[in-house]
Each structure stands twice: as structure tokens, then as C-alpha cells.
Design a protein around this nucleic acid. Structure first.
Lengths: 208, 208
DNA sequence: TACAAAATTAAACAACTGTTTAATTTAAAC
DNA sequence: GTTTAAATTAAACAGTTGTTTAATTTTGTA
């Protein structure tokens, strides 16, 4: 499967990604993409084959972004608590930069099983869960983290909190009096990020 | 606006609700509803006027379920920690029983502003947030809960965790070796519920 | 300049969507 | 039994969807 795209294709991918993030996959028509990209509607099929394959291309295009970063974390010379902080920061930044795909991967086609999608997604999930496990086990071995934690339920808390906040943007903008989209984005990177870090750390450190 | 529905209407509402929970609002066609309910496709328009009004009817039909329950919680003679446990249990049960509407309300039409939907949703949200605030302030006044918590970010963690888990059902069934849907549902009511309760309590009790 | 490949276009396609129509059946009331 | 309203039906409607066609333009190359 090809993973190199020419600039015209990349242009389409980026516009599609933004529209997917805003309106979802099914909520975004090829005609909408074509109009925004100022191309003929046939060009999407011409370049990618179909709308589904456009999505797969987008996933492939972004896969590299999803893969890197996390690996080197468990090697770094930090204590487990700092590693958790850093891991969550990486999580959030990665999701923030790939909202479009993440929304589709995690919240749409929940039942359907697209080959490419599922393969890539499961790889990423498995790797991320392993990184998290390594860090937590290290913290537990050092007697810092408690042991009564179900590790696979931690990513849902991180990602779920983020997406619930993001998907209800207008509500939270009003509630927290964030006037602009920039203020909203800024709130995510400061307050929301800290909230999630606090939450997970508290879960791991708390002694009943 | 009428809130009483005859049994035929209720039958349609319940089937629509289940399909919405599974495939979302836009992912569910009137023809699919009609087929599953074994009625003519025209009957939906006949009884409700339109697909949009069917959704509004469903929201109205379930509103009573959303409203009750929580109110009396802050009055009960429990300590704040127990109240948090109970509140989360109520939260989860209510979402579990209203997956269809919750999915639509919180994850679809994020941009669009349907009058009925927004009105009902905001009422419920405001009330729930107030209940939570009351409990937490009580705990803070008693010196049990820490004060460096952003309360409006707690519901996103509760609901986000739940929904991220629920929306990725197949993945978690495989990961946690839950063979059947019943096992999955059971896991939610035991392990996931406990995880969320632990998480929120840890966040509130943790002393840095 | 001439030729071939790539890119782009408008138009049509079939399948689906929500909704409406007009005819028919069922039910209830008198 | 007749009448009137409610319920149900099949069919058609207009709009949108993703995709394909066949013709045209652009581009690069010899």
C-alpha cells in the first residue's frame, strides 16, 4: 500500500481531515470536500478511489504521527510520577493534532470492522497500553503507586475526558466563559491537561 | 408540547432509541426503524411529523428519567465520600439506560443547535453540576476534600470514561476477554463503575 | 510542432435519504 | 348496517449521497 502522496493529494487529505473533525466522516460529503478544496468532485475518486479509501489514506498519512514519540518515554531518566505527567501530555497533544482521525477511529464505525483502520488502530492502542503498563509497573515496584488499579481503564479516562470536553465545545465555552476558539484550545492545553494529569496521578498515588 | 404517547408511539420510540444507541441518529434511517418495528415507513411521519420530531419526542419521553433521582441525594444523611460514590452510580445507571439519547446529545450535532434538545440538555446539565458542587463544597467545608479541583471538569471525566469504553465495545471485549454482550454490560456495572468512583474520589481526596 | 499521458470537467448514474400523496383498510359510533 | 374518523398501505416525490462515464483540457516529452 502506497504511503507517499503528492501535494494535491495532501491538500485534499488535510481539508478532509479538518471537515471530519468538525462534522464526522458520514457527516462530510465528497461534494463538501471538493468545494472547500476547490476541485471537481470526481478528483477524490480519481486520486483515492473512493471515500472509504480516502479515509484509509488519511489514516496511513497520519500513522507516522501516531507511532513516534511515546517509545522513548519509559527509557528517560525520570521518576514514574513525572513519566505519567509526560505520557498524558503526549497523549493529549497527539489527540489534539489528530482530532479528525481520532474522532472517526474511536467514535464512529464502532461496530464495523474496516481492515486498515482496525489494524493501525490496534497497533497504536497496544503500544500505548504497553508504555503505560511499563511506567505503572515501575512505580508499583518502587512502592509509589498502588496496585489496585485496572490499567486498561486508564486510557479511556484520559481520552474520554478529552473528547467529551472537545465534543461539547459550545457548552463548555459558555460554562467557562471562553469567548473564542483560541481561548478554548488554550484551556485544553492548560487547565484540562492539568486536570487529567491530576486525576490519573491521584488514582495511582491515593492510599485508601 | 404533548408528552403522552400511546403504546404504538412508545413502541416506535423504544426501537428508535435502541437503533440510535447502536448506529447514531444520522446512521439510523426511518426505513430501518420501520422495518424493525414492523410498520410502514409513513407511520413515523404520521405519528411524529418527522424524523427530527421523533428525536425530540424521544428526548421528551426520557426527560422525566433524566430529571428525577439526583435531587434528593444531597439531603441524605451520608458523608461526602459516600455521596460521591452514590452520585457516580446514579450517573452511570442513568447513562446506561439512556445510551441512545446521551450518545446523540453529547456526541452528535455538536455544532447544530436544536431548540428542544439544547433546552432539555442544559437543564439537566446545570442541575447535575449543582448537585455535584453542593456535595464537593460540603466535603471541602469539612476538610475532607482538597480545594484545587475544577468541578466542571469532573462530569466530563465520568461521562467521557463511560462513553469511550462503551463506544469501543468490541475492542474492550477482546482486550478484557469478555465473551458476550452480557459480560460486557456486567463489567460496566462492576469494574468500570468502581474504576470511575475510585478515580474521582482519589482526585478529591489526594493530598499533594 | 506533434504526440501521449495525466489532469480536469460536466453530466449522468443508481442507490439511498426523509417526506408526502392518495387510495385503502380498520375501527368505532350511531 | 351505515357513516365517519383513524390507521395503514404502496407509490411517488424531491433531494442527497458516492461513483462512473466520456469528453475535454493541460502537461510533459520526443
Amino acid at each position: 500500500m502506497k504511503t507517499d502522496f503528492n501535494e494535491k493529494q495532501v491538500q485534499i487529505l488535510l481539508i478532509a481531515e479538518a471537515l471530519f473533525a468538525e462534522n464526522g466522516f458520514e457527516g462530510t460529503s465528497i461534494r463538501t470536500i471538493a468545494k472547500k478544496a476547490e476541485i471537481n468532485i470526481a478528483m477524490v475518486s480519481y486520486y483515492f478511489g473512493s471515500k472509504d479509501k480516502l479515509l484509509e489514506a488519511l489514516i496511513l498519512y497520519r500513522t507516522s504521527d501516531l507511532k513516534i514519540q511515546i517509545e522513548n518515554l519509559s527509557v528517560e531518566n525520570l521518576d514514574p510520577v513525572e513519566k505519567i505527567d509526560k505520557l498524558i501530555e503526549l497523549y493529549i497533544n497527539r489527540i489534539r493534532c489528530n482530532k479528525g482521525i481520532y474522532r472517526i477511529l474511536h467514535f464512529e464505525f464502532s461496530s464495523e470492522d474496516r481492515e486498515t483502520k482496525m489494524k493501525v488502530l490496534n497497533e497504536v492502542r497496544t503500544r500505548n497500553l504497553k508504555s503505560l503498563e511499563t511506567i505503572i509497573h515501575e512505580g508499583q515496584a518502587k512502592g509509589i503507586f498502588r496496585k489496585e488499579v485496572i490499567i486498561p481503564l486508564i486510557p479511556p479516562t484520559i481520552m474520554g475526558t478529552f473528547f467529551h470536553f472537545y465534543m461539547n465545545k459550545e457548552y463548555f465555552k459558555k460554562l467557562l466563559t471562553l469567548e473564542t476558539d483560541e481561548a478554548f484550545e488554550n484551556y485544553i492545553q492548560t487547565k484540562l491537561k492539568t486536570h487529567i494529569q491530576q486525576t490519573i496521578k491521584a488514582l495511582l498515588l491515593y492510599e485508601s
